[in-house]
Structures are given as C-alpha cells and as structure tokens.
Design a protein around this nucleic acid. Structure first.
Lengths: 211, 211
DNA sequence: AAAAGTAGAACGAATGTTCATTTCTGTCAA
DNA sequence: TTGACAGAAATGAACATTCGTTCTACTTTT
C-alpha cells in the first residue's frame, strides 16, 4: 500500500498489494494504458479477488484515490495542529509537498498531476476535495487575521500555492532536475512578497512608470 | 478548424472539420473516452478520409496538437514583437491566456490542461515546447536586464506564471465562476510584488520576526 | 465446514484499422 | 458543348484485436 507517512505492514494484505501495483502502473503509463490484467500480473493477486475487493478497474482507481485523499487530509490536519499562524502553515504545506515530490513521487503524481475526471467521471474535481479546501481555508483565515494581504480568495490561494504547484508539475515532467526542496526558501520568498500585506505600493507604481 | 485568431474558411476543408470535432470531443470526454467512430460521426467525415489524412486516432490528436502549438507560437511572437519590456510581455501573456480561457476555452483546455503524455507518448512534454520556452526566455531576459529580480529561472518563471496558470485550471475545473479577466490586475499585482527586484526586504524580515 | 483466495478460460462489447468500392474532378478528343 | 476517362479523394461496411468482466473448478486458511 502506498503510504504518505505510515509504514506498510508485513505481510501486506491483498488489497494493499493491488493498490501498490495499480499506483505504479497508473502513474507510469496512465490509467487508460493499463489493463486490469496488467494490475493482476503486477500485483500477483488473482482476478477474482480484485473484483471481489474493488468491483472492477475503476474501483481500483477509486480505492486508491480515496485512500490517498484521506492521507492528504490527515497531513493537513497535522499541519494545522502542529503549526500556528497561516503563513507558517502555508510554508509548511509547500515544504511537505516539495519533500513528498522527491520521496513519494508516485503519490504526488497520482494526486496532483493526473486528470481524475477522465477515469473517475463521477468524482468532483480534486481541487474541491478536503485537502484543497483546507489550504484555501488557511489562506482565508490568514486574510481575516491580517497575516495575509486581503484579496479575492481564489487569487490569493493561487498566488500562494500556484508557483509551488507549477514547479512540482515541471519537476514531474522531467524538466527541472534539481530536487525541489532546494528551491523552498526562494519560492517562499517570492510568495510572501506577492501575498504579503504589502506596503510597497511605491514599487508597483514605479514599475508602471518604468514600463 | 479551431483557431486562436484567424477565422475559419467556408466551406471548411475536410481535415479542419475533423480537428474541430476532435477538439470538442477530446476536451469534453478525454482522449481515451472518445472513439475514432465518435470523431467520424461528429465530423461527418468518413473513416477512410480520416485515416488518409491523419493515419489514425493518435494522428488526429497529434495533428490538433501541432496546429495549436503553432498558433501559440505565433501568439508569443506577436507579443514579443508588439510589446517592449519583459514585465509588460509577461503581463500581456497572462492577459491573453485569461481572455482565451473565456473565448477559446476548448483550445486552452486541450493545450494547458490535458495530459498529452497519456495519448501522445512520443511527444516531449508541452512545457518544453516553443511557446513555453519563449515564456522562460522572456523571464530570463527580464532578469538579465534587471527588470525582474534575479533568481533560479525555473523558480522565477513558476512564480510569475504559476498563479495565473493555477487560476486557469481552477476555472476550467468549474471551481471559479468569475471570468478570469476580472482578476487580471490583482494577479499581476501579486506577481510583481513577488518577482519585482524587491527593495521591500524589510517586510520579509518583519514576517520572520512575527512568525 | 465455511470463507477467502487462486487460476485461467471464456465471452461480449467496444474500438482501431483496413480495403474494395463509389464519387468527384479536371482533361482532352470528338 | 459534350462525353469518355483516368487519377485522386472519399466512403463505409467488415475485420481483427483488445479489454473489462464473469464464471467454474480447485486450493488454502480460519
């Protein structure tokens, strides 16, 4: 079973072996280029059991999705519990996402880089799921508390996390070959100069004049 | 034929009708949930002609991809030709992307929101294509000229365009229901406070102290 | 003995591709 | 102007294959 934090029990239960194999295959080739027979072969679990547990190919993808969504949700809860202050929470989330991109690459790719709508047509978009809502809630609370400059919630959340997520995509696509944690400080610096409750409007007007 | 700027000739040639139908279907359902028979039916062009012109289903997707890549490339050339200064070029690109997200939604979705690797396995990732290279070149030139704060090129490019691209994704996923051009000024403000050759390091240190 | 898992053959539906045939189009002799 | 005709373009029914799913007979575990 692909875990974000826990370690897998040994011997792994049957359904976990299926999800592990499925994650690797789906990420490597894409859901539609993987047959359920491939998952069967790779996991070593019989066809009958796969259908017993998951009900079909889509069921496997859905099971994997729910399992990982829950882990992301737990990650957010932990951040909120352990870290005080909206800004530091945002920083912690970016830090964790960068770390996991290196150490749990398949998971990040399956959750942040796949088009779930194409193989889980009944699921709402992942950006409307719990973990993403939590991120936006953190931003909103930061604005309410005056820690983060006020603005449209969508714009502010995108400004804060957009650069990091973009970098993750570029890294997963093989364009960036530096491990992302190396960029942490620089990214965060950019973020807060952008979303800080900016007094430096001077700078902005100077830009317009110079342009 | 889906065009970013030109208007379609009348009557449309056969291969254009195929691409128009394919774009709509691929964007609506995803490449793998569309059969070539669907494209046949929707376009009204016979099976044989489709194979004559494109060589197969993947050929249709590839033809569409190349056609639109060229149009994006032309868009970048136009921006570079018409707009002086790196910052203003970046702003113009964001403005255009926001506009096209509303007026040429399918095109933006096919180019910025699809996972091409899953159906065009031989293509390099779109972020390594001409238009994206152009965007990074603009950022690099801006850094060289002192218009944009110096930093890792990947980080700076992601910081500048990441928020906007994230917002486009959220809009295409149906989460944001305000047309994006309304956010233009606010997004750009965030961008330049983040990537400006920032004097406001005071602010930054104050943040660290407060955290 | 009941429950859970395995192995793998079989099946139907869907899909990508092919190709024999028909239709169109421009040319040229009558 | 007509009509024959050749080559190109277009057609769509037929084909082969793949894939998701089901099922049966058998084995292991509890």
């Amino acid at each position: 079973m692909p875990y974000l934090n826990k370690v897998a029990p040994d011997p792994e239960p049957l359904d976990c072996r299926v999800l592990t194999a499925a994650l690797d295959l789906f990420v490597e080739r894409g859901f539609h280029n993987v047959s359920i027979h491939d998952v069967q072969r790779e996991s070593g679990v019989s066809m009958g059991s796969i259908y017993k547990h998951f009900g079909g190919k889509e069921g496997v993808a859905k099971g994997l999705y729910y399992h990982l969504l829950k882990e992301f949700e737990e990650m957010m809860d932990r951040v909120i519990q352990e870290v005080p202050g909206s800004r530091q929470r945002c920083e912690r989330i970016i830090t964790l996402l960068f770390e996991y991109t290196e150490t749990r690459r398949s998971i990040i790719e399956y959750m942040l880089h796949a088009k779930h709508r194409e193989f889980l047509p009944d699921e709402p978009p992942i950006c409307s799921s719990g973990p993403f809502k939590a991120m936006r809630r953190i931003v909103q609370e930061g604005m309410d508390a005056g820690e983060i400059r006020r603005g449209d919630p969508w714009v502010m959340a995108s400004s804060i996390f957009g650069g990091a997520i973009r970098l993750i995509h570029l890294r997963l696509d093989g364009l960036v070959d530096t491990p992302l944690p190396a960029f942490r400080d620089e990214v965060i610096e950019c973020v807060w100069q952008g979303a800080g409750n900016g007094e430096s409007l001077v700078q902005q007007s100077r830009i317009k004049a110079a342009g």
